[in-house]
Structures are given as C-alpha cells and as structure tokens.
Nucleic acid binder design. Structure first.
Lengths: 148, 148
DNA sequence: CGCTATCCTTACGTTTACGTAAGGTAGAGC
DNA sequence: GCTCTACCTTACGTAAACGTAAGGATAGCG
C-alpha cells in the first residue's frame, strides 16, 4: 500500500529530514543503544533505513517530547519493544502455540507499561487543565461583577 | 484557614523540603529570574518565603515536569504571572473599574495561553494513549485466536 | 573511471540545569 | 554574649543531549 516506491532504502539524511531532526541525533541514538546498530553494517559503509526504521525513530522522538524521560529511561522503556521487533521475525517461525502465546504476553505487558505511564501523565495534565479552567472562571466572574 | 501558624516566614531549606527539591534549585531559579529576587533582601541576609512563594515554586516545578519546556521558555510563559502577582497588590489599590478590568483581562489572557499549551499536550498524549489501546486490542485479539 | 554530494568516524565544543565544595555570616536558643 | 546550625556568595564541576569541525571514504551518476 501507500507509495509506489516499494521500500527503497533510505539514507540517514533523508530520514532526518523526514522526521524533522538531525543526522547527529540519529547517530547519537544509535550510539547509546536507543536504535539498533543498523544490525550488520560494516565499518565505514553508509547506514540505510527501512520505512519501519523511520517509524521507530519517529516514535522515539515522539515519546521523548511527550513523556519527560531521559534517553536512558526511554531506552529501558523501549528495550522490550526492541526485543519485540526481533520477536516479530521469530513470530512467523514460531510453530508451537505456547511460543506464540509467550510472545503475545510479553508484547501485552510491554504495551501495558507504556499505557500506564502515558495515562499517568495524561491525568496530571488534565488535573492541571481543570485547575486552570477554575482560575479562568474565577476571573470571568470578577469581570462579570464589574459589569453590574 | 488551614494551619494555626499564621504565615510564619519559611527559610529556603524548609521550602526545598516541602516541595521535594534542593536549595540549589531554588537559588538557581531566582538567579535566572524564574523566581522574583525575594524582592528587597539585603546582600548576605537569609532568604525568607511566604506560603504564597511556596505555591509559586511548587507550580514552577510542576510545569517543568509536565510540559516539556526549557526553564527559559517557562520563564517567558510565567512572565505574565510574575507581573500578575504584583498586580494582585495593585488590585486593592485600583480604584477605577477600567484599571480593574485591564488587570483581569491580562490575567485572563495569560491563563488562556497556559491552557492552550496544556490542552495541546493533553491531546497529543490522548492520541498516543488511543494508539496504544489499539495495539493492545490487536494483541488481545491475536491471543483470543490462539484459543479457538 | 572520475566527480561530487552525502556519508563515515573521531573528537572536541556547547548549553542546560543543576551539584558540590570553600570560606564566611546570620540568627535562634541558651 | 556565645554557639551551633542553617544560610550566604562565589566559583568550579558535571551529566545529558546533542553541535560542529576535520579528514577521509562511499555511492550514485554520467
């Protein structure tokens, strides 16, 4: 689906442009283990990325901006996801139902962790929002009183 | 209301303890203008804080943790609020209704700015949440399929 | 095969948001 | 008045998250 370009490998500059970040940032994330080391790239050769890789980076940047985590914490949060990406390939090879169940259970747990974090943040923000609304109403009320 | 202690002035260490931060942080925030310079303190004398000051710091820390802003951006966001705190004192002296209206209008605009920011963040997080829920459901579905 | 743009690695530089240490002072209690 | 603790200022240190510059290799194109 999507484009006609059936998965043309992207270079790091294109990825950076697409996401709205810099090549340095992407290399840095690879350096600290946030991004898998483009697997089996030989020393000196160009990194190349798939569309899935781009999504991965996009997701990282998003989480970085939305949650207040350090890249280190983020790294730990996504560790499971990194493993999950690898499990995706195991998935098709997994013959036993038990294996498949385990993989799904892990994925589920991982998503649950993220959800908990996101919901916590969300509630805090909603709390803040309602407080601001209350303030706003108070001011409006004062303004109304001036008009009487 | 609240405590019997009718507004005992607090020292910086107590404030830090109350809020769960450090004295260094508080001094730093004062240094960069996030906190008003405890007004008219003479060189070398101890800083002392009112309950209102504590709330101010608490609010700053909260915004710092919740929104993804630099202290510099935060400073600009709260500039209006800093002015507003001063206007509170002007408030009781403001005789003309026009003056009062202006003050209230400014307060309202400032709160609106904050609200916009908070709501934006909130929506982004809700978006992320719903995406995670969708993922979660997909996994659950797969698990259910295994049971058939 | 050569050209050029983009990429590679290495490594030092920079900003933000504090931590920490040194040497001296204020102020509450006795 | 003295003491002891928490505070003061000054200033250097630091971890995180990249920025930036140098010197050289790669890969797509003609």
């Amino acid at each position: 689906m999507s484009t006609v370009e059936t998965e043309r490998p992207l270079r790091i500059g294109e990825v950076a442009e697409l996401i709205g970040t810099t090549t340095r940032t992407i290399r840095y994330y690879e350096e600290i283990g946030l991004l898998p080391g483009a697997m089996d790239r030989e020393q000196g050769k160009h990194r190349c990325y798939t569309q899935a890789d781009v999504e991965r980076v996009r997701e990282i940047v998003r989480l970085r901006d939305l949650l207040g985590l350090s890249l280190d914490q983020l790294s730990r949060l996504l560790e499971a996801e990194t493993a999950r990406a690898e499990l995706r390939r195991e998935w098709k090879l997994a013959e036993s139902g038990a294996e498949r169940r385990r993989i799904l259970d892990e994925a589920s747990a991982h998503i649950a962790t993220q959800l908990e974090l996101v919901r916590g943040r969300c509630h805090e923000l909603e709390q803040l929002e309602s407080e601001l609304v209350a303030k706003q109403e108070l001011v409006s009320q004062r303004l109304a009183e001036l008009d009487r």
